[in-house]
Design a protein around this nucleic acid. Sequence first.
DNA 1: ACATTGACCTGAGAGC
DNA 2: TGCTCTCAGGTCAATG
Length: 265
Amino acid sequence: MPELPDVEIFKKHIDSTSLHKRIADAEVSDSGVLENISGKSLEKKLSGKVIQDSFRHGKYLFLKLSKGQELSMHFGMTGFPEYLNKDDEKPKHVRLLLNFEDGGMLAYDSQRKLGKIGLFENHEEFVEVHEMGPDALDEGLDFESFHNIFKENSGMIKPALMNQSKVAGIGNIYADEILFQARLHPKTKAGKLEKSDWEKIFKAMKNVLQTAIDCKVDKSRFPDHYILTNRTKGADCPKGCGDKIQTIKVSGRTSYYCPDCQEKK
DNA sequence: ACATTGACCTGAGAGC
DNA sequence: TGCTCTCAGGTCAATG
């Protein structure tokens, strides 16, 4: 589930519950999710630190700790953070637990362990090392720079949008939504797109991602004309064109689209 | 350079 | 109820 809007909601959750709290101690219950550090050493580095700030870049979240370093969190397909009060029941697959001095806790849960936690100097360095593109909602990412990133691309549009080294934050669900709103078939070759198509994609990208955040990624709040509210094969096209939603594999991932609204170029 | 496939992990849901 | 099969919102490496 965690694409850019989900992670932004995670960030807000952490900001409102865990910011400025001091970690009394940390428990790594599965070091399989650690990226560049051992469980013991991460526990040691975390204890006594205060979470001073948080940042998001694409699907990654960073917690800035007192005395420097930042804890990076990626959530894979099934991960999420959850703040807990003393007697709250813990989620099922906690891999890292931060115990705050005040008795509260911040859990990092990841059922499938596809996410990663690490400790880095700062998120700017992290983004560089991982060769990530600009965040999709970065205000500095205007249409010109967006167009420049993609215009030479020769592959299909959907995998290009999901490529984190071009623009960071878009995954399978939101790529489908962006292309549905821009009325472009997911297999369209990027090279065939005109500037006006890129403008549509750019607008749809900013709009869809921001809307998802404003809706707190709660499906029931999304606009009716969004495809992700009824991601079902054979469902009626939410634009009311009369056609039915179909699925197709695009670079290994299932894509939902409307054959009538999203004609292939 | 790009597309495709499988691997990484685990669990939910469908079908029998 | 229990078994097997398929699928899942992410990424990475290997192969064609």
